[in-house]
Computed example of a mutant assay.
Amino acid sequence: MQIIEVKNKKDSKDFLDTARVIYKNDPVWVCPLDQEINNIFDPKENVFFQNGEAIRWVFKDDQGNLIGRIAAFINENKANFGAQRIGGIGFFESVNDKSVAFKIFDTAKKWLVERKVNTIQGPINFGENDSFWGLLVEGFTHPSNGMVYNPPHYRDFFEAYGFEKKMEQLTNHLNITDGLPERFVKIAEYAISKKTNLTLKPLDANRFDECAEDFMEIYNAAWAHHENFTPIKKEYVKDTFKKVKPFYDPNYIWFAYVDGQPASFVLVLPDVNQILKHFNGKINLWNKLRFVMLKRKKTITRLRVWAMGTHPKFQNTGLESVLVYKCFEGAMKSHYVEGELSWVGDFNDKMIAIHKALGAVPGKKHITYELAIK
């Protein structure tokens, strides 16, 4: 077996092509954009390199055929938590051979141990957890943009190697054409009518900077109490907004303000994977033109709820229900037929309750694993 550290353009191409080899006969898989993956490992594009480091490997058999890949990384802002020093692995792919998979894990573990890591989490992303996070273990259907898709047997590889479940990430599906449950609508409309100090605003491209500031304020306050949390920076939020600008719809990204204070947000995006599945990871000029044409033809029929958050001062006031109602109120009058509510940690009882109140049903389950190095 050949173990090759990614150091140049050829190696980087092999890293990308490994997934194409693994999934060449899988009609469900959607190839992520090459540029999106490359940017994750580019210090000029990924702010996480300011306080961390990452490495990638490609694996080939003795004949030079691609058989696997993996990335390992450490974020010093999140690495040290009590007695744990945490590193991550992600973008794992392997042929269906446990000995190959274990060698891939061994390579990443060795690099992390050299950096004094005693706990490995994976598969995760060298970035925020809204994309490329967790191992798919249930619901091997069309993956929405940013959601991990992998063969079912990867679970056996992780668990046989010694990885144990840290948390489950639940994704529920909503049939938009059915409409929202009457009780949910009444609660949301009542909350809107009674809150005279409440202002609702969609994301405005002309005030991206202000919206990024509000998003950051709400998000950091909402997640501050969670384990090993590191506040996101405005730079990251602005980059995210720029990334979604070509395809976002202001009808599905809303902010709530109470007495003028940023209180809650919901970020819902069209599932561009329904178009990107035709591009095989390439976003050249021709595909950009195809994207515009396919979008106009209303090829995208699914919405994905990427993120929601409410400032602790305004939690338990029904703001989440109000914003979800605003999003799906418009969606029910559009060409969209499905909403994907992803992903919610199994620890988030409040959000799980909202999903149930909406009438959503289980769709997918991902697991974030953890390996204690002894």
Rank of each mutant, 00 (worst) to 15 (best):
N220M: 09
E329H: 10
F215C: 11
I124V: 13
G52I: 05
N96T: 06
G339R: 00
N77P: 03
V58W: 01
N220H: 03
E128K: 07
I3H: 01
N75D: 15
K243L: 14
K350E: 15
H225F: 05
N273L: 04
L303Q: 01
K194M: 10
K295A: 14
N280V: 01
I187N: 05
K194N: 09
D11H: 13
V344T: 12
R20N: 01
I275D: 02
L341F: 04
N172D: 09
Y257K: 02
D271M: 04
R304W: 00
E235K: 11
I373H: 00
A212P: 11
E114F: 03
W133A: 06
S342W: 02
Y154T: 06
Q50W: 01
A205K: 10
I74T: 11
G318L: 06
E227R: 02
A256E: 06
F81N: 15
F157M: 12
L267E: 03
K238W: 08
L112R: 09
I192N: 03
H142I: 02
F91C: 12
D61S: 08
N175L: 11
W133N: 07
C211H: 13
N175Q: 12
E340R: 05
V258Y: 01
A71P: 00
F279N: 02
K364Q: 07
V266N: 05
S334I: 07
T171Q: 10
E45N: 13
I86F: 04
L285K: 09
D17G: 03
K194W: 15
K110S: 08
L66N: 01
H226F: 07
H153W: 06
Q169F: 11
M293F: 15
N77T: 09
Y336W: 05
A353M: 06
T171G: 15
G52E: 06
N228G: 12
T171E: 08
G359S: 04
E370D: 09
L136G: 02
N145Q: 13
L135M: 13
M147N: 14
W111F: 05
A108N: 02
R56V: 11
F73T: 10
N220G: 04
K350G: 15
H366F: 03
